[in-house]
Deep mutational scan, measured.
Amino acid sequence: MKVIFLKDVKGKGKKGEIKNVPDGYARNFLFKKGLAIEATPANLKELE
Score class of each variant (00 low, 15 high):
N20Q: 13
G13N: 03
V9Q: 01
D23F: 13
I18D: 01
K19D: 04
N20L: 15
A36W: 01
R27W: 11
K2S: 10
I4Y: 09
L35R: 02
V9L: 06
L6M: 07
F31R: 01
D8L: 03
P22W: 08
V21P: 00
P41S: 11
I18W: 03
G34A: 07
L35S: 02
L30H: 01
L35A: 04
R27F: 11
E17A: 05
N43W: 07
A39F: 14
G13E: 02
K7Y: 13
E38W: 06
K15H: 05
E46A: 15
F5D: 01
G16D: 05
L47F: 13
P41Y: 10
K45T: 09
R27E: 09
K33F: 15
A39R: 01
V21R: 00
A39K: 02
K10Y: 12
N28I: 05
L6W: 01
L30F: 02
P41N: 11
F31K: 03
I37L: 10
L47H: 11
K14V: 11
N20W: 15
N43L: 10
G24F: 13
N28G: 10
A26L: 09
G34W: 07
V3S: 00
N28K: 11
L44T: 07
K19F: 05
A36R: 00
G13Y: 12
A42I: 12
G11M: 05
K15G: 03
L30A: 01
V3G: 00
N28S: 08
M1P: 03
A42W: 06
K10I: 12
L6V: 09
G24N: 12
F31L: 12
K32D: 09
K45M: 13
K45R: 12
N43D: 07
Y25Q: 04
K14D: 06
I4K: 04
E46T: 14
N20A: 11
N43Y: 09
I4N: 01
L6S: 02
K45L: 12
N28F: 10
G24V: 11
L30M: 03
K7F: 14
A42N: 11
A26F: 10
P41V: 12
G16Q: 03
K33V: 10
Y25M: 08
R27S: 05
L6E: 01
D8M: 04
N28M: 10
K45A: 14
G16T: 02
D23Y: 15
G34Q: 08
A39D: 02
K19L: 10
K2A: 11
P22T: 10
F29S: 06
L30P: 02
M1D: 02
P22G: 08
F5A: 00
L6G: 01
P22A: 09
L44R: 06
L44H: 06
K33G: 08
R27A: 07
A36S: 02
A39Q: 02
P41F: 09
N20T: 15
A36Q: 01
V9P: 01
F31D: 04
K15I: 09
R27K: 13
E38L: 10
V3Y: 00
E48T: 13
F29Y: 14
K32E: 11
T40M: 05
G16R: 03
L47W: 15
M1T: 13
K12Y: 15
L6Y: 03
K32Q: 09
D8Y: 08
K15S: 08
I4T: 01
N20D: 13
K32A: 14
N43P: 04
E38N: 03
G34R: 09
Y25N: 04
N20Y: 15
A26R: 02
E17H: 04
Y25F: 10
I37A: 07
T40P: 05
E17S: 05
K32F: 08
D23A: 15
A36M: 00
E46F: 12
K12M: 15
K10A: 13
M1Q: 04
P22I: 06
K7Q: 13
K32W: 08
K32H: 08
I18Y: 04
K12W: 15
